[in-house]
Design a protein around this nucleic acid. Structure first.
Length: 425
RNA sequence: GGAGAGCUGGCCGAGUGGUCGAAGGCGCAGCACUGGAAAUGCUGUAUAGGGGCAACUCUAUCGAGGGUUCGAAUCCCUCGCUCUCCGCCA
């Protein structure tokens, strides 16, 4: 959420920064609302101060012997009533205005970081670095072809169970998925991340706190009978894990590695990535999440990205890092590095992790602060996939495929899978 | 699902209409004492939004919302949540 004070005092900064995202916004109305809100609050509190004085006065006078039924007290009561009515009117107005203002504020995306490259869409993203040597020979299979041969998962029957875009893993496939989750969590916890296994049903306040609501309701599955939604990413429950808290400064940074299944409706992606593990309504993901002191968030962004990369490096999966341009930035992000893994079968880089710094955007929505001296201060939050498990499996299958039809696994996975390769069954 | 109890500051806990943002204790921080520490003493210690932007000060907040009143943590109504017992269940 944008800072209300900034809206009130410096709306031009907001419009110019949102302009970098390719949004032309007219903040005139919002600016007016914010100013009016302040004015109403001021008027009201002056009146209330007066009312408080009258109330206290009555008490004093009765205690020191004034006749509670006398004119003197009656007069004060009358004054009190007049003030009360005025306050009620103002409060009413104020409440409406506040609600409107908040509703509005919640719909604005985060302001891009000054370091974020300007651009209009994904074609303007900036490649920062590459790691590893991609396999580029021809005739390689795509992951879903390999999976079919090795009987790792089943799509058609899964449509019977649920819908299209669901998958049932079994045998070596299920084993590999589980292995990857364990491997990723082990890797991150060995570097000091705290492991988290959060609820995957989350309430509206949680989705609002991390920025999925109110704007992106159509992207999440919802339980109509309850105030609950299926979480689209562990980022949501982990953010709200500390909602409405003041985290002591000496506990920062808090670093979490959270495994969760993720649920997304993928509205508007009909026909895209219909085969395999790339785009599903339900997928597994290990998410990295940091709560940091605002002074340290830039460095943290480099680190969380490096931590996500370390998974790809350990799995020997070639990838590249993109610095997303302002036009391609997610709603809550100030700046984002996307990791794209090389899929030799598809012959393309595919997003496998998105590492974002959100500044105080989510912290303000979620009221997560730290204490600095006698003042509180919003923390900064960061998140990054470490990694999306299904896409990791896809990359492993395509990268490790052998002429004999088996798939060679990277060494680090052997203890988790129990063998060095997947064989046709 | 049925029955009951409760929700007060970081924690415990007092407070049933009047100067209460809230006694007391614990915890924490600073200072004093000490060779150092313990013990002790003193002082300070909620959040949000305003104004001075330093001391300080105004407003709101005692689960949430509404009501009664000049005045509510304290009375009334509605809702939420937590806990205990019974039933059911992985």
């Amino acid at each position: 959420m944008l800072d209300q004070r900034l809206v009130r005092e410096n709306p031009d900064v907001i419009s110019s920064q949102l302009g970098r995202r390719g949004k032309t916004v007219d903040l005139t109305r919002l600016h007016l609302m914010a100013k009016q809100q302040r004015q109403l609050e001021e008027e009201r509190s002056i009146l209330q101060a007066e009312g408080n004085r009258v109330g206290k006065d009555v008490g004093h006078r009765i205690k020191s012997g004034s006749d509670p039924k006398g004119d003197e007290i009656a007069d004060l009561r009358h004054q009190g009533n007049v003030i009360k009515q005025k306050v009620a009117v103002l409060e009413d107005e104020e409440k409406k205005l506040n609600a409107q203002l908040r509703d509005q504020l919640l719909t604005f995306p985060n302001l891009p970081s000054p370091h974020c490259p300007d651009g209009k869409d994904e074609s303007d993203n900036v490649e920062v670095r590459r790691w590893g040597t991609p396999r580029e020979e021809t005739g390689l299979e795509e992951h879903w072809q390999i999976a079919e041969r090795l009987k790792l998962f089943e799509s058609e029957r899964s449509a019977r169970i649920a819908q299209s875009r669901f998958v049932t893993l079994f045998g070596q496939g299920a084993r590999l998925e589980r292995a990857l989750i364990n491997f990723m969590l082990d890797l991150h916890t060995s570097k000091g991340y705290s492991e988290v296994l959060p609820p995957v049903l989350v309430n509206t306040a949680s989705l609002t706190g991390s920025g999925q609501l109110p704007k992106f309701a159509e992207e999440s599955f919802r339980c109509a009978d309850d105030d609950l939604w299926l979480t689209p990413t562990a980022e949501v429950p982990v953010t709200s894990f500390h909602r409405d808290e003041i985290i002591p400064a000496d506990q920062l940074p808090l670093r979490y590695a959270a495994y969760s299944p993720c649920f997304r409706r993928e509205a508007g992606s009909y026909g895209r990535d219909t085969r395999g593990l790339i785009r599903l309504h339900q997928f597994n993901k290990v998410e990295l999440y940091w709560f940091v002191h605002p002074d340290h968030s830039e460095a943290a962004h480099q680190q969380i990205t490096a931590d996500a990369e370390s998974v790809l490096q350990a799995l020997k999966l070639p990838y590249r890092v993109l610095d997303l341009c302002t036009g391609d930035l997610g709603f809550s992000a100030q700046r984002t590095y996307d990791l794209e893994v090389w899929l030799p079968g598809a012959g393309a880089f595919r997003e496998i992790s998105s590492c974002s710094i959100c500044g105080d955007f989510q912290a303000r929505r979620s009221a997560i602060r730290t204490k600095e001296g006698k003042h509180t201060k919003l923390v900064h939050t960061l998140n990054g996939s470490g990694l999306a498990v299904g896409r990791t499996m896809a990359a492993l299958l395509e990268t490790g495929q052998q002429p004999d039809g088996s798939v060679l696994l990277p060494e680090v996975l052997i203890p988790y899978v129990g063998s060095e390769r997947l064989q046709p069954q």
